[in-house]
Design a protein around this nucleic acid. Sequence first.
RNA 1: GUGUCCAUGGUAUAACGGUUAUUACGUCGGUUUGUGGUACCGACAACCCGGGUUCGACUCCCGGUGGACACCCCA
Length: 465
Amino acid sequence: MKKPIKKPVKKEIKPKKVNKPVKTETKKESAGAEKSKRTFNLLRGMHDILPKEERYWKAMFHASENLASYFQFGRIETPVLEEASLFVRAVGKGTDVVDKEMYLFEDRDGSKVCMRPENTAAIVRAYIMYGMWNAPQPVKLWYWGSMFRHDRPQAGRYRQFTQVGYETLGSHDPAADAELILVAYNFYQELGLPVTIHINSLGTPEERVRYKSELVNYYRSKRSYLCEDCKQRLVKNPLRLLDCKAEQCQGVKDEAPQIIDWLGTESKSHLTKVLEYLDAVEVPYQLTHTLVRGLDYYTHTVFEIYPDTPDAGGGAQSALGGGGRYDLLVEEMGGRPTPACGFALGLERSFHVLKQYLEQNGKDIPKERPDVFFAQLGEEARKVTLKLINDLRKSGLKIGFNFFKNSLKTQLELADGFKVPYVLIIGQKEVQDNTVIIRDMESGIQEIVDQKKLETMLKKKLGKV
RNA sequence: GUGUCCAUGGUAUAACGGUUAUUACGUCGGUUUGUGGUACCGACAACCCGGGUUCGACUCCCGGUGGACACCCCA
């Protein structure tokens, strides 16, 4: 409140430059307008992706796109907004994702809609809606988009976050599971980030139910040793008991029955086959019997991807992505019985860990640099330059320039900042002669060439023939 | 949802219950108007918001908002 009043006064006392009073006036005006002075914050848990981070995002997008094309996944984009019950049904009532974290609201016509908290449900919806079972099976789809969960923000966790995901619908073959895991693994290989896959099997619902009751029995007998959270989990979400990080629960956890012992021969052999495929493609994995997943729809294979870097974020948050098989979901959602599996990667997390990893190892994703910089003096030269730059657009050369600077000195400074090997200069003289100066930034040697020969000259000099 | 810590120019920071709030980087401009990587000069730009205590608050207190981290949970 005080600032707007103070400032103008201060400036009026010592009048200096011509444009000062003008500025004072605008300040006064905006102060008078009161609320117009307010600036805006981001909503909690939201974030911007700025140009300086773009190369990481681009790398991630390219990796996922190339893998999708190589492994023949078709891109699908579903809406951010869906009928709320879609996710309630698919993800499951009682899960935190549905009960506590959904962006849920009434649309203007009173219908309940929500912003997608994940994308598998929508993929299944689309599979059924468009009768994709009529296409050759399995149907392989991938997506890239924003998801929304109203959770408390934390390292690598946002309320709006980006996931890339791959889903294979219509195959119960363990090769489908393995292929997905391979894609996930390759994604990080492409980025140069070492990761390990943690894998487990949840078996069939029947096997899981039997195991769960066994687990509950076991934990009940040890109830007095458990932390408060685990006492809650015992009634609310028993499988999560295995995920507890509390010191006091570790002993109990280590002795706990393992689901693998409760799997039938078919489930076991499914898991074994997946592992055999992983061995064949040399994907490093770790059989983790404590791995359970939060969403209700998983059956058989479940897996998560963890960075190999030791201090890459906290405990649970270090999972970069995860997924698994959901053989019953399509039918539950009203489709024909269709086995399926898929996974999603958290891109903000991946970005975070990747950047940190690269920095720690003195590496980086190279910034995009122009090959040459075009400097221009005067209006006529500017026109010619613009024409030449446009002509060179298809040459494959990247040309840096800044038309809004007039002094050659400034333009050379810019060029220097880009570390370009050559600068092209056009002034009055060159406009008249239809020439252009090529300046070697290292040696300072300059030569004058005909504008018509510019492209071939440049390509030659840059070794891009 | 719970807990801990935090909030000064674009970024990173210093200081202070009281007349002009540091410094560096940055951005813009200049050192005879057509030549960079150095140097010098100048300019720009900040106390998150609201309330309280006080003669007086950027500084103390409360609330809000936002941030960081952990838990719950999840990507």
